[in-house]
Design a protein around this nucleic acid. Structure first.
Lengths: 199, 199
DNA sequence: AGATAATAATACTCATGAGTAATATAAAAT
DNA sequence: ATTTTATATTACTCATGAGTATTATTATCT
């Protein structure tokens, strides 16, 4: 007969944190539906009712992870807003720096990132919010001549989100590119275009 | 007691096609897991066993839709490959034309497109394949001086896929932008960059 | 030390939804 | 006209997985 009741040295905070991190990994790898509460608790060395001691239900733990991602990400994008009066010469460095910060966060939190980008219902909302933030960053502080007026900033912001997502998934998370380098390449393409000016 | 047996004027091909198109819509709106076979057949005015007359199981009908999307998309990307010897002056028009064709397909098949872009397991594979195609298109036929050598074509191709996806979802499918116009804007950003050259 | 709170397990229930067995009717083939 | 094939229905089974009632053990508080 198995061990019943509270375990020696057991600690609620710890169990909760463990469940949360395992859940993040399961959701990231298998998606919401294919993640079973039973397999989360199994990996944690706990049982089903213990799970419900810390989370109201499966949906709740998922939402908690989503919020974690959202808050971190939006804090970063807010920080990467450019202050007024930047010289054109340092513009690209400043943008690169902000992007690299975001990529670093993704790299350090791959599970959260996959959830935020993949789990369609919320991913869509997240990307839209991110695009809005980026658009605000661009128009409110850097519209005075930095960028070509012909460009629709909304289109541009959405494009940037698309690029960030795709390169995060294909280059950053698999370890093929470092945050800094990736940020540089994106900025280079966007600022200068790809046409060969030496032609 | 309800009608039993074959209905007057009933036609297998037709029923199958109906189920397929309703399924596409359900998968697109609700995702794979939240789409119930029972609700598909209900909308089609049929019953569960009839579904299994035409499709082996839920997975099979989903895969059939995925294949439909894949084949159409890859046929289009193949067609949009640029033949050698294009003048630099018409380069941007040619790329725009190819992109617009892809966007038109998406616009005419919004359900398939959402499935192809959203349903994570296959969406990822699809995007990767698309990026590879684009990369081949770019390097094999247009490497001779059109584009700056400094740019990693793989990064570029992945970026383009990200942009296509995001703008399809946010601008094209909601009807905010027409295929042609969208293609033009993308090409403009990519070829020329966004920096204001008049500065 | 005794009472209470926190943390955990055993052993369930219960809804849901995929898939099926058996049967009936219409259309096509002989 | 009769047989066969195609298309459909009613009325199930059955697995799965989320969530729970009850009970036990350890830690903490008074």
């Amino acid at each position: 007969m198995g061990q019943r009741g509270r375990k020696k040295g057991s600690n609620g905070e710890q169990s909760r944190a463990l469940l949360l991190s395992i859940a993040a990994n399961e959701f990231a790898e298998n998606g919401y539906h294919d993640t079973k509460v039973s397999s989360i608790v199994k990996r944690a060395g706990l049982t089903q009712p213990t799970f419900y001691l810390y989370f109201q239900n499966k949906e709740a733990i998922f939402q908690e992870l989503v919020e974690l991602f959202r808050e971190n990400l939006f804090s970063l994008t807010r920080k990467s807003r450019l202050e007024p009066g930047i010289e054109l010469s340092s513009l690209s460095d400043r943008i690169t720096y902000g992007l690299a910060g975001i990529f670093s966060f993704f790299k350090e939190n791959p599970d959260l990132t996959k959830i935020g980008f993949y789990e369609s219902a919320i991913a869509e909302e997240m990307k839209r919010e991110l695009a809005i933030q980026i658009e605000e960053n661009l128009t409110s502080e850097v519209q005075n001549g930095y960028f070509s007026q012909a460009i629709d900033m909304c289109i541009f912001a959405e494009s940037l989100v698309g690029i960030i997502e795709r390169l995060t998934v294909t280059k950053l998370l698999p370890g093929l590119k470092q945050p800094n380098r990736l940020a540089e390449e994106i900025v280079d393409i966007f600022l200068n275009g790809i046409i060969n000016k030496n032609n």
